[in-house]
Computed example of a mutant assay.
Amino acid sequence: MRTTVLAATLAATALIPATAPAGTAAEAPHRPAGQDSARPAGRSTPAGLAPCGAGQLCLWTKPDFAGARQTHELATVDIESCTPLASGSTAQALANRTGRPVTTYQSATCAETGEFETYPGGGTWTPRSPYTVRAFKIWEN
Rank of each mutant, 00 (worst) to 15 (best):
Arg2Cys: 07
Arg2Leu: 10
Thr3Ile: 11
Thr4Asp: 03
Val5Gln: 13
Thr9Asn: 02
Leu10Thr: 11
Ala11Asp: 05
Ala11His: 05
Thr13Arg: 11
Thr13Tyr: 09
Leu15Asp: 01
Leu15Ser: 13
Ile16Arg: 08
Ile16Thr: 13
Pro17Ser: 12
Thr19Ser: 12
Gly23Asn: 09
Gly23Ala: 07
Ala25His: 08
Ala26Thr: 11
Glu27Thr: 10
Glu27His: 14
Glu27Ser: 10
His30Lys: 04
His30Pro: 00
Pro32Lys: 03
Gly34Arg: 13
Gly34Gln: 06
Gly34Cys: 13
Asp36Ser: 09
Asp36Ala: 12
Ser37Val: 13
Ser37Met: 10
Ala38Ile: 14
Ala38Leu: 15
Arg39Gln: 05
Gly42Lys: 14
Ser44Lys: 10
Ser44Ile: 15
Thr45Phe: 06
Pro46Lys: 13
Ala47Met: 09
Gly48Val: 07
Gly48His: 13
Leu49Trp: 04
Ala50Met: 06
Ala50Lys: 06
Ala50Leu: 08
Cys52Val: 10
Gly53Ala: 14
Ala54Glu: 09
Ala54Met: 11
Gln56His: 15
Gln56Tyr: 06
Leu57Pro: 05
Cys58Thr: 13
Leu59Pro: 12
Leu59Asn: 03
Leu59Gly: 05
Leu59His: 09
Trp60Asp: 04
Thr61Trp: 00
Lys62Arg: 12
Asp64Thr: 08
Asp64Glu: 13
Asp64Ala: 15
Ala66Gly: 12
Gly67Asn: 12
Gly67Arg: 10
Gly67Gln: 03
Ala68Gln: 14
Arg69Lys: 14
Gln70Gly: 05
Gln70Lys: 03
Gln70Tyr: 11
Gln70Leu: 09
Thr71Val: 15
Thr71Gly: 01
Thr71Glu: 07
Leu74Thr: 06
Ala75Tyr: 09
Thr76Gly: 02
Val77Ala: 10
Val77His: 11
Asp78Ile: 10
Ile79Gly: 01
Ile79Cys: 03
Glu80Ala: 07
Ser81Ile: 00
Ser81Leu: 06
Cys82His: 00
Pro84Arg: 07
Ala86His: 10
Ser87Val: 09
Gly88Cys: 01
Ser89Ile: 06
Thr90Cys: 05
Ala93Trp: 05
Leu94Cys: 04
Ala95Asn: 11
Ala95Tyr: 11
Arg97Asn: 14
Arg97Leu: 10
Gly99Met: 02
Val102Gln: 01
Val102Pro: 12
Val102Asp: 01
Thr103Ser: 02
Tyr105Glu: 03
Ser107His: 06
Ser107Thr: 13
Ala108Ser: 12
Ala108Asn: 04
Thr109Glu: 10
Cys110Ala: 02
Cys110Gln: 05
Ala111Trp: 11
Glu112Leu: 03
Glu112Asp: 08
Thr113Leu: 10
Thr113Pro: 00
Gly114Arg: 11
Glu115His: 11
Glu115Arg: 03
Glu115Leu: 07
Glu117Ser: 05
Thr118Leu: 04
Thr118Phe: 04
Thr118Trp: 07
Thr118Gly: 02
Gly121Cys: 00
Gly122Glu: 12
Thr124Glu: 10
Thr126Lys: 04
Thr126Ser: 03
Pro127Ser: 14
Ser129Met: 15
Pro130His: 07
Tyr131Glu: 03
Tyr131Ile: 03
Tyr131Asp: 03
Thr132Tyr: 08
Thr132Arg: 15
Val133Met: 09
Phe136Gln: 07
Lys137Gln: 12
Lys137Trp: 01
Lys137Tyr: 04
Lys137Met: 15
Ile138Arg: 05
Ile138Gly: 00
Trp139Asn: 00
Glu140Arg: 08
Asn141Pro: 00
Asn141Gly: 01
Asn141Phe: 06
